[in-house]
Amino acid sequence: MKNLLYFIFFFSFSFIQAQNKYFSKDAKVHFFSDTKMEKIEGTNNKAVCVLDASTGALEMSLLVAGFKFEKALMEEHFQENYMEISKFPKSGFKGKISNISSVNFEKDGTYPVDVTGQLTIHGVTKDITTKGKIDIAKGVISASSTFDVACEDYNIAIAALVRDKIAKSIKIDLIAKLQKLQK
């Protein structure tokens, strides 16, 4: 009985230790719309994300107002006409890395990962599956991914007048330098 108790005691502690989470508060999310008429891109350097390395659970969130553009008018139209930030101030992702066990956080290398979950943009949540990678070099961990989203899927209406200037499918790439959460 005593041994069993000690076992449970150490087992539960090892469980607490295994809660190794990584986070970033300055993940970079960049989107790019490419058409012959116009190239539109915005960058947000203030996305937050947390990765639970033991379960693979991954969450990311950002303020849409944080996207910066080269042209002020584009930024205004992005916020006002397309993303409607007063109604939908945030976008985010909630899901998991299904093959997190293949990543050895203690060893340098590039680990391809499969990500599935729900992406919320403009108040619309959709299931998404994509690929990414986790790079570990001298203890610096960075996670990145590139994927496409269709404006139509997220109820982002594009007026006929500007249809040639805005791509139907927007390329999104993101990179997060992850730090270990100290708790």
Binding site: S12, F13, F15, V50
Partner: peptide, 19 residues
């Protein structure tokens, strides 16, 4: 105590809140 500690940590389904 140990079990409840484990439980609280397991219960964190909203990951971002730990920040």
């Amino acid at each position: 105590l140990c079990l409840s500690a484990t439980k609280t940590i397991m219960a964190q389904d909203d990951l971002l809140s730990i920040l």
